[in-house]
């Protein structure tokens, strides 16, 4: 039972999340919570690439648009039922992500990030321009009856349950990938790509696979977005959406199991809690974002660890040999740069 404790923690977190509708929140709180869970699903995909592989992808803001539009088109125009649409969105987005990876992984560092930026905006431009298929800038209203295993999905609470259960699966899955042999090899490509290649790791295939996997999560989040928001429009996607996901990721901490979740909850709930006018709320989010990058590069989830380090330093030199007490994500104090390879 190596992962027994983590599984128990995840089960507790999931049950706590599932209890939310029972305490009788307003519809608004419930839909915000659903939104946070959807953001978290996509953010886990981005965090897998950045936290483990050191790849900062901005393409996901466009990729989840592919997921959302696949869902919208097949649910509304073709009348497919929910589960096939979900699977198709994931598969098509993963396929698109593979294509993007084939193009973008040929270059490194800044060039990778900028290509993915162009991809995100290219997808948005494509959605807005390809009127015969996507209805262009009019967007698509997504109204389709949804049945899952014989249950009709209608209320906000129903959607919340579905998305949260998916999120729990996503958290477990990404954690498994990170600690697996695959994940450790992927981390090796972050620390030193050339060295990883020279010890016989097939870096190209590895990074391609990781990118497709994280694209699949973007597709899943996009499909849920289309169903739960009941309206898709090209301008919901693109680099601006990526910025929100990256904010979620960095705020929480890309390398921590619950980092993306914490970040998504804060990003979604902070503006309404501050009750600022929308514009000032956006500005406040920007300020928080910059402060987090400059002050806690490891994200909020790294704070307990950081405070622990400060506490030990303040108490004086540690009598134990170095590293004896370190556990978990101990090396996550510095943000992975991924550009210095």
């Amino acid at each position: 039972m190596r992962y027994g404790k983590s599984l128990v923690v995840l089960a507790v977190v999931t049950v706590l999340m599932l209890l939310l509708p029972a305490v009788g929140p307003s519809n608004r709180v419930l839909s915000l919570a659903t939104l946070a869970a959807i953001y978290a699903i996509v953010t886990y995909g981005i965090a897998l690439l950045f936290g483990t592989g050191g790849l900062l992808s901005i393409a996901h803001g466009g990729l989840w648009g592919i997921g959302a539009y696949t869902a919208a088109l097949f649910a509304v125009r073709a009348g497919w039922s929910f589960l096939p649409v979900l699977v198709l969105s994931v598969v098509i987005t993963a396929g698109a992500a593979t294509l993007v990876a084939l193009m973008s992984l040929r270059v490194r560092g800044h060039y990778f990030t900028i290509i993915t930026f162009a991809v995100a905006e290219g997808i948005r431009a494509l959605i807005n321009a390809w009127t015969p298929v996507t209805a262009g800038t009019e967007g698509i209203v997504v109204v389709a009856p949804v049945r899952v295993f014989g249950f009709d999905i209608r209320s906000n609470a129903d959607w919340y349950y579905i998305v949260v259960v998916s999120l729990a699966v996503v958290i477990a899955l990404t954690r498994l990938v990170v600690v697996s042999r695959f994940g450790r090899r992927f981390a090796a490509t972050r620390d030193n790509l050339d060295l990883a290649a020279s010890v016989g790791i097939g870096v190209s295939r590895l990074r391609l696979l990781a990118f497709s996997l994280s694209g699949a999560l973007a597709g899943l989040g996009g499909a849920y977005w289309a169903y739960s928001q009941t309206f898709v429009h090209g301008d919901q996607f693109g680099a601006a959406a990526s910025i929100v996901f990256i904010l979620c990721m960095l705020l929480g901490g890309a390398r921590y199991t619950y980092g993306p979740l914490i970040g998504a909850v804060i990003v979604v709930f902070m503006p309404p809690l501050l009750a600022l006018p929308p514009l000032l709320a956006t500005a406040a989010l920007g300020v928080v974002f910059i402060l987090v990058i400059l002050l806690t590069p490891g994200g909020l989830a790294s704070l307990p660890e950081r405070l622990g380090q400060l506490w030990r330093r303040w108490r004086g030199p540690d009598p134990r040999p170095p590293g004896a007490g370190a556990a978990g994500d101990g090396a996550a104090a510095a943000v992975p740069t991924g550009v210095a390879s």
Binding site: L250, T282, G286, I293, V335, T337, V339
Partner: peptide, 18 residues
């Protein structure tokens, strides 16, 4: 770590535009 500079600029976009 220039990538942090890039991220900072993403935050700046939101501040300046809003």
């Amino acid at each position: 770590a220039p990538i942090r500079g890039f991220l900072v600029s993403l935050g700046l976009i939101q501040i300046i535009e809003s």
